[in-house]
Simulated assay, not measured.
Amino acid sequence: MTTATHQDNEVRLPRIDAPKPDPAKLNGRIDALDGNRLHGWIWDEARPDQPILVKLYCDGKLALEALADQSRIDLRRNGIGDGRHAFSMELDDRLIAARGRLSVVGVSPATGSELELRLPAADELAAEAAIAVPLARFFDKVEVLIALSRRAQLAQKELNEKLDRIAARLEENNAIAEATKAEAEAQSELVRRLGELDVFQLRFDGTLRGFDERLAAIRKEARAPLRQVTVILGFLSALAAAMSFVTLAVTLWGG
């Protein structure tokens, strides 16, 4: 009896390693110790959009943490990313008294790389604080003024647009008012002409009444042979008066 054995061939896929992140390029410094507040900045040139975590140690133990995400106009002007890489820490009296045993370290959240920021001597920090802190405050005020100026420009633009819309509406309203005024004047003129026509009609009716009365009297006084001639003349006079009325009416309406 023959026994056949089959050996499974193991397929080995090539190992694909995950791409390694770019190494961190940390750069920063401590600028000043203004009273109990420690100022500085740090950033990762390889990842300028990612803020760096700053840790303060006293005798090797973590005492404070802060993110380097505060904006400083002097950093932006000096090419330090978008300028949002500053940090500040409020130190208590215990930490101030132990300043010789303090150390500040920046840590990249992406790679874990660390950069220790040198804490200058007290006289060096005091000299830098005398210049850097007022200058930073000055630049902060300048940045606020720039932001206010931009807002003022936007507000002025919106105001100009509103004024243009109001002016357009006023022009439209003026056009409507002028058209209404012209229509009112035309109606007033029409009413005036109708009044004149009514007055003329009243006068014409009076004239016809007088003419009828005179014609009746003439008929009574006239002899029989002249009666027909009188009727014809009366008819022609009435026809002439009617034509005059029509002519006057056409003149009033057409004028």
Score class of each variant (00 low, 15 high):
residue 206 G to W: 01
residue 56 L to D: 05
residue 253 W to H: 03
residue 132 A to T: 04
residue 203 R to Y: 02
residue 22 D to A: 14
residue 166 I to S: 14
residue 212 D to R: 11
residue 151 R to Q: 15
residue 32 A to P: 05
residue 157 K to N: 15
residue 138 F to A: 12
residue 182 A to G: 02
residue 253 W to S: 05
residue 32 A to S: 13
residue 48 P to L: 02
residue 228 Q to F: 09
residue 105 V to R: 06
residue 15 R to I: 14
residue 68 A to W: 01
residue 212 D to Y: 08
residue 73 I to P: 00
residue 48 P to W: 05
residue 109 P to S: 08
residue 192 R to Y: 03
residue 45 E to A: 13
residue 50 Q to S: 09
residue 205 D to G: 02
residue 220 K to S: 07
residue 196 E to I: 04
residue 255 G to N: 14
residue 148 L to H: 14
residue 195 G to V: 03
residue 66 A to G: 01
residue 84 R to N: 08
residue 182 A to I: 05
residue 209 R to M: 03
residue 181 K to Q: 13
residue 114 E to L: 07
residue 15 R to C: 08
residue 189 E to H: 06
residue 170 L to R: 14
residue 201 Q to W: 09
residue 143 E to N: 09
residue 76 R to T: 03
residue 195 G to M: 05
residue 227 R to H: 08
residue 15 R to L: 15
residue 134 P to R: 06
residue 79 G to R: 05
residue 221 E to G: 11
residue 24 A to M: 06
residue 148 L to N: 15
residue 204 F to W: 11
residue 28 G to F: 03
residue 170 L to M: 10
residue 142 V to M: 14
residue 254 G to M: 11
residue 248 L to D: 12
residue 212 D to C: 03
residue 121 A to L: 09
residue 27 N to E: 15
residue 195 G to P: 02
residue 24 A to P: 05
residue 142 V to H: 06
residue 62 L to W: 02
residue 201 Q to A: 14
residue 56 L to H: 09
residue 220 K to P: 00
residue 181 K to C: 01
residue 234 G to M: 03
residue 30 I to N: 00
residue 5 T to W: 14
residue 13 L to Q: 06
residue 251 T to M: 08
residue 151 R to W: 10
residue 120 P to N: 02
residue 124 E to K: 12
residue 247 T to N: 11
residue 207 T to E: 15
residue 101 R to F: 03
residue 72 R to Y: 02
residue 25 K to L: 12
residue 136 A to H: 08
residue 84 R to D: 02
residue 161 E to F: 07
residue 228 Q to I: 04
residue 25 K to H: 12
residue 135 L to T: 11
residue 208 L to V: 08
residue 183 E to I: 05
residue 231 V to N: 06
residue 24 A to I: 04
residue 64 L to Y: 10
residue 178 E to D: 15
residue 88 S to E: 10
residue 182 A to N: 12
residue 129 A to L: 01
residue 47 R to K: 07
residue 166 I to P: 04
residue 17 D to L: 15
residue 243 M to W: 12
residue 5 T to S: 14
residue 146 I to S: 06
residue 123 D to T: 08
residue 77 R to H: 07
residue 37 R to C: 03
residue 71 S to W: 13
residue 48 P to E: 05
residue 56 L to T: 07
residue 7 Q to F: 10
residue 46 A to N: 12
residue 165 R to S: 06
residue 176 I to A: 15
residue 116 E to F: 03
